[in-house]
Measured scan of single mutants.
Amino acid sequence: MALNTPQITPTKKITVRAIGEELPRGDYQRCPQCDMLFSLPEINSHQSAYCPRCQAKIRDGRDWSLTRLAAMAFTMLLLMPFAWGEPLLHIWLLGIRIDANVMQGIWQMTKQGDAITGSMVFFCVIGAPLILVTSIAYLWFGNRLGMNLRPVLLMLERLKEWVMLDIYLVGIGVASIKVQDYAHIQAGVGLFSFVALVILTTVTLSHLNVEELWERFYPQRPATRRDEKLRVCLGCHFTGYPDQRGRCPRCHIPLRLRRRHSLQKCWAALLASIVLLLPANLLPISIIYLNGGRQEDTILSGIMSLASSNIAVAGIVFIASILVPFTKVIVMFTLLLSIHFKCQQGLRTRILLLRMVTWIGRWSMLDLFVISLTMSLINRDQILAFTMGPAAFYFGAAVILTILAVEWLDSRLLWDAHESGNARFDD
């Protein structure tokens, strides 16, 4: 018995066209964080690309023209004298008006014999932002004059995390709450300039795509075929072959399989920071003279006294001054041990922890910024005066060393310790 099946006739004509040209192939790229070699397709503007294995951002879609970056830099340069030299806060102490600005706080630190601690604050609040705007201006002028731009481009990517104007702005709020127990506070004209400078700096850093600047100024022929001998440069993120001198053909720094002496430098910085954190938390970090009496505060006791007036601000200072430094030390110690013992479990967790400490590390400088600003506000000789204690130097040095330890660690070593050939990683 035959089955009668109805015929289905399409209502619209289906047209099949042959592909007349070869589909576009992607360029081969190595991930600078996990060293995976993959094919990167062509990316349009405002599109980002991520590593298929570790999800690290390979290409950032946010990109401004150099002219727009230069305009932002010149605007920031105009704001800087007002943000640093004009009063941020006014207080009335014992019937006398006192003005506080950024430069005055750094000068008070240096004047009291601790120039190293003052230079830490100076670099993060004044030096690094000033280098940022002058570097962008150098790129703008240098591109037109045919100057060598490689050193500036190499420095810009590392400079971003040292620009800490946003953290200093939080420190202004913390210092205001600490001082309000002794005097009446009012915002100064410099505060508005400083807030504007923070906003412009944040926007500029978020749109400063150094890798795209490398592509514009020093374009290189990408690798179009897969080759395990391809290496990625950690300076400019170019994937290719080393030249005859073993250097990256684009930025001219040595092109090595792994960062040289990464573990040794990381261990040295980490152990030194552990040693410095002990006096930083045991010795007094601030000293207040009130009517001839002397009151010393460690980091913890200062947080407890701050909690009596504002528990939320005390929580912020606790996280930045105690929780973050010790968390960074514990995480980095764990990561280094996992590399030495070739741990194969929990790779995803370790990668996330490394990215976390990379982002939060700079916030530990908050305590030094609060001390710097408070020193310029309260300084009335023996009637009422505020000065920093010996722990300030140890704390600042420990924070900087932990930042350097994270920067010096080559994250690809975590993958080397893991089993080879993993296309995915999980716990």
Rank of each mutant, 00 (worst) to 15 (best):
A314Q: 10
A417F: 12
E215K: 15
M375I: 04
F318A: 10
I177T: 04
N4G: 05
C251M: 00
F393H: 04
L159T: 05
H90K: 09
N148Q: 06
P41F: 05
V198A: 15
R25K: 05
L409F: 07
C343L: 14
D35H: 06
R17Q: 08
C236M: 00
A49Y: 09
A100V: 09
I96G: 02
Y28N: 10
F122N: 03
C343E: 12
K229H: 13
V210S: 15
M356G: 11
H261D: 09
L352K: 14
D27V: 07
I403C: 10
G396H: 01
V406P: 02
W359V: 13
L271D: 10
W64N: 06
L271E: 04
G105D: 01
V163I: 13
H261E: 06
N101L: 01
Y241L: 14
A269D: 02
F318G: 14
V189N: 14
M356R: 08
L79D: 02
V232R: 12
W359L: 11
Y218I: 05
A397S: 13
T334G: 12
G389S: 02
Q7I: 05
L255S: 09
G85N: 07
L337V: 11
V195P: 06
I330P: 01
W359H: 10
L94M: 03
I43G: 09
L337I: 12
D227R: 13
I378L: 03
T67P: 10
F386D: 00
L130W: 14
F122W: 04
V125I: 11
K111Y: 09
F194T: 08
R62N: 06
D426L: 04
I288F: 03
R247P: 06
L368E: 09
S321V: 02
R348T: 12
P24Y: 09
V170Q: 02
I316P: 15
T374G: 02
M365V: 04
V406N: 07
A392Q: 03
L40C: 07
D426E: 07
I287E: 06
F318H: 07
C343Y: 15
M109R: 02
T327N: 07
E215M: 14
I299D: 02
V406Y: 05
I400G: 06
I8P: 09
V170G: 15
Y182V: 14
N44R: 05
L353F: 14
W267D: 08
Q55D: 09
H90P: 03
G20A: 08
I185S: 02
V331Y: 10
F238A: 10
N209S: 12
C233A: 00
R225F: 14
V210A: 14
L139I: 10
P24H: 08
S411K: 10
S206P: 12
L283P: 03
S286A: 12
V102H: 02
A56M: 08
Q220T: 13
V170M: 10
I126A: 15
N143Q: 10
R30L: 08
T5H: 08
I98M: 02
L156D: 01
V195M: 13
I330K: 09
S206F: 15
R158V: 15
P219E: 13
E22W: 07
L277F: 00
D243R: 12
I285N: 01
H418M: 09
T358Q: 12
V198C: 13
L300R: 02
H237P: 04
R59D: 05
I136L: 11
G20R: 07
G293D: 02
M388T: 05
A223D: 14
L283A: 11
R221E: 14
H207D: 08
R245Q: 12
V174W: 01
T67N: 08
V174C: 15
A115Q: 11
S206H: 15
I299C: 14
L197S: 05
G20L: 05
D27A: 08
S39P: 04
S372P: 01
I19K: 08
I106A: 03
